[in-house]
Design a protein around this nucleic acid. Structure first.
Lengths: 233, 233
DNA sequence: CAAAGATTAATTGTCGACAATTACCCTTTG
DNA sequence: CAAAGGGTAATTGTCGACAATTAATCTTTG
């Protein structure tokens, strides 16, 4: 079973309050583009739509703002962030730095059990991939799953909060809205293997380098894709 | 004039709403320890103290939570984060990764004018330091000022938000509450010089390495200090 | 007819009150 | 006397209404 659902709730705490539920609903809606990127948010309208009061809606909006999914200006209102190429590349730069460090820390701090669990996960991905070769959706989930486990393995609460609590929602949003069905599936899998090996060897320095290259490769892949699109147009 | 005040308002937008003002007040109070670290926050009590309604207070609390200065649990309440050594070291790990990358990006993206401005700032710090040699407070401000400029120089909004909007309040909180009057003043100044030189040379790779060492040195200095304290006790 | 200013409408910020959940204290019981 | 249970008090979550600010419309004027 995938651990990916936990990405929605980094604290692993179920949504108990109604503001939590509305936050979850809006999170999915924004990430999946059902609430358009860059669109203005009307508090009265959304409150009516979700059948809650404006106070509760604003509570949900505050949490969305924590994830950097919406932006607020005083006395003006909220807007969904818009998906620009520059924004996407900025996120990859941050990921390269943070996940690289997370990987170094994971090599240093993961327990043997955690390492074993991650190796098992990789084996499962290998089968799943062999079965449904070319179907990139599972690879997408597998990729997020892998990165998620590495981040948790850092045992650094600040890293975990920033990456799982904030950035990953944005990453998913970009992936879905830009239709990024990675064509790097098999290569990415090999890179995951190397990284896990480095972690297993407790070689933090190598683990960081490999993770940074892994993410930088994705970024360059996107840059290339964008360049092609611009050339066609 | 120092740019350090801008740290309180990363958006450079003045506090217009009352919730903003209360946020500012509480931010200073928490950072300076006037609201004790780890203490529970009573919404009715604080609302009365600041002479505002609970709704407005909760708005301010939400912004404090965005800075990771308080933590909330559903139906339980808010607590000020507590200053633990582990937490401090975690932040330094994140800073090493993010500011290292910010420095690389700064070498790549800063305009010539920005570089010149930063060199001027360093010269000013040199004089200020020569005058008040040993007085670490100015060095503290100078240090934050330097790091602040590098981060802005990255021209990466995500990096700027995370570092200036979130982490630096925590950094200041730890510095004040742990009484970290850095004894690395002169050495830190030299390191700053080298980093600026690398940025001036547009050598992103070197700039990142130097910044990471600079921050790692601070972290190790703290670890050493802690070890000494434990030995004495 | 275009542009600037005033007036109106709509949206956001703030407030106080009620409902739901949690924490505390007292009583009861083995 | 310790521990479990129930009841009360306090705290948090939610709601609807009012005040302040902003956006839109209309009028006036060059």
């Amino acid at each position: 079973m995938s651990t990916i659902m936990a990405l929605d709730n980094p604290t692993l705490q179920k949504a108990v309050t109604t503001a939590d539920k509305v936050f979850d609903a809006m999170l999915h809606a924004i990430v999946e583009g059902k609430i358009a990127a860059g669109s203005k948010i009307s508090e009265p309208e959304l409150a009516k739509q979700y059948e809650i009061s404006r106070s509760t809606l604003r509570e949900a909006l505050n949490r969305l703002e924590k994830c950097h999914l919406i932006e607020r200006k005083a006395n003006v209102g909220s807007r969904v962030v818009d998906c620009t190429i520059e924004g996407l590349l900025e996120i990859y730069v941050v990921r390269e730095a943070l996940e690289g460090m997370a990987c170094r820390q994971a090599a240093q701090n993961m327990s043997d059990d955690e390492v074993a669990e991650m190796q098992a996960m990789l084996a499962q991905h290998a089968n799943s991939q062999a079965l449904k070769d070319g179907i990139s959706y599972y690879q997408e989930e597998g990729d997020l799953d892998f990165h998620y486990k590495v981040i948790l393995g850092s045992h650094n609460q600040q890293l975990i909060n920033i990456l799982c609590g904030q950035l990953y929602h944005l990453v998913r949003m970009y992936r879905i809205q830009f239709g990024m069905h990675s064509p790097r599936a098999t290569r990415a899998f090999q890179e995951h293997s190397s990284i896990i090996q480095a972690i297993c060897d407790r070689d933090g320095e190598l683990a960081e380098i490999l993770m940074r290259r892994h993410i930088a490769a994705s970024r360059k892949n996107i840059e290339k894709k964008i360049a092609q699109q611009n050339q066609q147009a």
